[in-house]
């Protein structure tokens, strides 16, 4: 038990700051006789930001839960940082669709969940990084939906994860809060260098954040698109819009245009009209 904790800490320190590589090989998952994922191969480089898009029920959340060790594959293997096997890699953190804060713990105690007493001071620091330092002493019930999700983000980041898995964490937020949260996630990812895998059904969100956008249809990867736009990305730019349109058309299975060359002069202003929601 104690050894286990020490090992976990060592693993966490070894992988901190550089991100974990993820290798999925011939991954297969079925519930009863219904297959959800079929012989899926995917390689994610350390520190890479990958977005997974697809219609609801395509298996994208299942894929994320398999990487996190929350589900057991029916066949094939998941290797996180070269390690496979039952249970989650200690350097990996999962951010759920709903915040899943403990209503009976104050905000700061929620962030510090699972930390050893020596690590606890870090919770206040990370809470400040997500802009909620002054709400530390409140109950989660007193926060708005966006603030709760920010607390959940702080709770995931306080462990200094080498890989962060995000399962549509912004799905329930309003458009403006979403953009704020996207910028916050991108900012923290660039500063810390962890590997990020984001499941979303918002194609604009995927294009805004990810190095690679992967489309899953009927349990298979049917598109693996690199996003070569410079960061910070501007949603109003023609290159952004074209890439978004291209992926969206592919998701909706409409005949569409190929992505155009990057625009050398991206529009500076954030154009809300350019936001598009898929599905």
């Amino acid at each position: 038990m104690n050894n286990d904790a020490l090992e976990q800490q060592a693993l966490r320190q070894a992988s901190a700051g550089q991100g974990l590589a993820l290798h999925l090989e011939a991954l297969h998952k079925a519930y009863g006789s219904r297959p959800v994922l079929e012989r899926l191969d995917l390689q994610i480089e350390p520190g890479e930001f990958v977005a997974i898009v697809g219609r609801s029920g395509c298996g994208k959340s299942t894929l994320l839960r398999l990487i996190a060790g929350l589900e057991i594959p029916s066949a094939g293997s998941v290797r996180v940082g070269g390690r496979s096997g039952p249970g989650a890699h200690p350097g990996l953190r999962f951010m759920f669709q709903d915040p899943r804060l403990l209503p009976w713990r104050r905000v700061l105690a929620n962030v510090a969940l699972g930390l050893s007493p020596a690590e606890r001071p870090r919770a206040q620091e990370v809470l400040a990084q997500v802009g909620l330092a002054e709400r530390a002493g409140e109950w989660p019930a007193a926060l708005s939906g966006g603030q709760r999700q920010r607390v959940a983000l702080a709770r995931a980041l306080v462990h200094e994860p080498a890989a962060l898995l995000l399962d549509e964490p912004l799905g329930a937020l309003d458009a403006l809060t979403r953009i704020e949260m996207q910028q916050l996630i991108e900012d923290l990812w660039r500063r810390r260098g962890f590997t990020a895998v984001l499941v979303t059904h918002d194609v604009a969100e995927a294009v805004a954040l990810a190095d690679r956008v992967i489309l899953i249809e009927a349990g298979r990867i049917t598109l693996d698109e690199r996003v070569n736009l410079p960061r910070p990305r501007h949603r109003g730019s023609p290159a952004f819009a074209a890439l978004e349109e291209h992926i969206l058309n592919r998701v909706l299975q409409r005949p569409g245009s190929a992505p155009q060359e990057e625009d050398p002069h991206p529009a500076a202003a954030l154009d809300l009209d350019a936001l598009r929601w898929a599905v």
């Binding site: 976990q8 969940l113 699972g114 462990h159």
Partner: peptide, 10 residues
């Protein structure tokens, strides 16, 4: 969901 979260947060 809270129990799943607790387990996955170590």
């Amino acid at each position: 969901g809270l129990i799943e979260m607790g387990k996955s947060y170590g």
